[in-house]
Amino acid sequence: MLRVATTDVSSDFAPADGDLEEGSYRPALVKLVDDVRDSEHQLLRGFGSRREVLLWTQELAVRTLGEMPQEWFHQMARQFRGVPASEHERTLVSALLRPQYRTRDLAEAKAREFRRQLSARTIRPAAHRAFRELRADAGEYVDDGSADQHAPGKQQYVAMRPAIHELHENQRRTLKRVLDGFEDREAILDWGHDLELATHGEIDEAFVTRCYGEQSTRRLLTGTDQSERRGRELFAAHYLIPVYNRGVRDLAGRAKEQADEQREERQTATL
């Protein structure tokens, strides 16, 4: 029988250091697999905060080379909206958090099962597609035998592609900045430049202008309250991470594959 869900025992997912030290003829592919394995490991362990979930989501988009379904990022964004009239997060976000960080009751077994399902049903197929994309152009190295200059464990770049790694760094930095909040209006403009790089130009033309110009948005981005902090998490989930993923797609050379582009702008109001 095909085992759909993966095991609970987290050590199974820890990248075994020994393996990584060994050389590989196709280090880019091995690096890809190891990175996704690490993301999955983090997922199965659960997260300590909504912020961690967001950072993980961004990293996952990069590590799967933009192969995660665009709609999935919109789903996640909806989950960040929270339950109206209460402080609780929605069920799926709860399920991603470790029990002590949740604000609503949820059977831990169910939460674990949910995380495994997410891993098995969504991440694995995306990782598989990423692998197949990459294998076509992953370099093969057969040099002298001093071996570990191409050891995947020593590679710092995602899929051994410096450009994608650079995008990742930009995304992570701009994401953290927005989550921390800005000191003043001017900082928003400055951040706008970095955002261009971080989204590989996929961000809407008027986006930064609106962040700067709209009073409510500005207050959200520069405020220091707990509610504004949570609001920024929603903001990032909603407006940034899906666009980051588009940026990854574009850079990874699959820009034309956006069959679901018209679904992008869908924002679902809750009845």
Binding site: Q75, R78, D260, Q262, R263, R266, T268, A269, T270, L271
Partner: peptide, 28 residues
């Protein structure tokens, strides 16, 4: 609507439309 949207919606979401407009909405 110019495209199919709803065939890939999740349960808990739907598209409401009239002759002049449409809008997606959801519920828990």
């Amino acid at each position: 609507m110019k495209h199919d949207m709803t065939s890939r919606y999740d349960v808990g979401e739907a598209l409401m439309y009239t002759e002049s407009s449409f809008e997606s909405f959801g519920w828990d």
